Amino acid sequence: MDHIVTVQDAVTAFADFMEPTDAELDAIELEIPVILAEVDLLDAQIVTIDRAPTELDERRIRRARRRVLAAHRDHVNGLAGQTGGVA
């Protein structure tokens, strides 16, 4: 009879070394407004998947797209201000 054993120790043996660095966490934190704006846009688009969008749906999608563009703009401008130019 063969015994099934877990390999959890082997899989997670190097987990301490795979943690994100402080710089990576800071970069993610800077991108949070962009991520949230994109999630809002996706939510607005998902609502209209199985039905024709109403005028209210179309406005919601347009506003969400503008928020995504503004968040991207602010993020890129923030990066340009930190590095002295666009990376």
Rank of each mutant, 00 (worst) to 15 (best):
Asp40Thr: 06
Leu36Tyr: 06
Glu31Phe: 12
Glu19Thr: 06
Ala10Met: 09
Asp50Ile: 02
Leu25Gln: 12
Asp74His: 03
Gly81Phe: 13
Ala15Glu: 10
Arg51Pro: 08
Gly78Trp: 08
Ala52Met: 06
Asp2Val: 14
Gly81His: 03
His72Asp: 09
Ile4Arg: 14
Met1Pro: 04
Pro20Tyr: 02
Leu36Lys: 11
Phe17Trp: 11
Asp22Glu: 15
Ala52Ile: 08
Arg62Pro: 05
Glu31Met: 11
Arg59Met: 04
Asp74Cys: 06
Asp57Gln: 06
Arg60Lys: 14
Val7Gln: 14
Met1Arg: 10
Val34Lys: 00
Arg60Pro: 04
Ala13Tyr: 00
Thr83His: 15
Val68Asp: 06
Leu30Asn: 08
Arg59Glu: 03
Glu38Val: 01
Ala71Lys: 01
Phe14Lys: 12
Val68Gln: 03
Pro33Ala: 12
Asp43Thr: 15
Ile49Ser: 15
Asp57Asn: 09
Ala27Thr: 03
Val47Ile: 01
Ala52Tyr: 14
Val11Trp: 08
Leu25Arg: 12
Asp74Phe: 04
Arg67Asn: 11
Glu38Leu: 08
Gly81Gln: 05
Asp9His: 09
Ile61Asn: 07
Leu79Met: 02
Asp57Leu: 02
Val47His: 09
Met18Pro: 00
Arg63Gly: 10
Ile46Cys: 09
Val7Ile: 09
Asp2Tyr: 15
Ala71Asp: 05
Ala71Val: 08
Phe17Met: 07
Glu55Cys: 12
Asp2His: 14
Asp40Val: 07
Ile32Cys: 03
Glu31Asn: 09
Leu25Glu: 09
Gly84Lys: 10
Glu24Ile: 04
Val34Asn: 00
Pro53Trp: 00
Thr48Glu: 09
Arg73Asn: 11
Asp57Tyr: 01
Glu31Leu: 12
Gln82Ile: 07
Val11Met: 13
Ile35Pro: 03
Glu55Phe: 03
Ile28Thr: 01
Thr21Asp: 07
Leu42Met: 10
Pro33Thr: 00
Gly81Pro: 04
His72Leu: 13
Gly81Lys: 14
Thr48Trp: 01
Val47Thr: 14
His3Trp: 14
Gln45Ser: 14
Arg59Val: 01
Leu36Gly: 02
Ile4Asp: 13
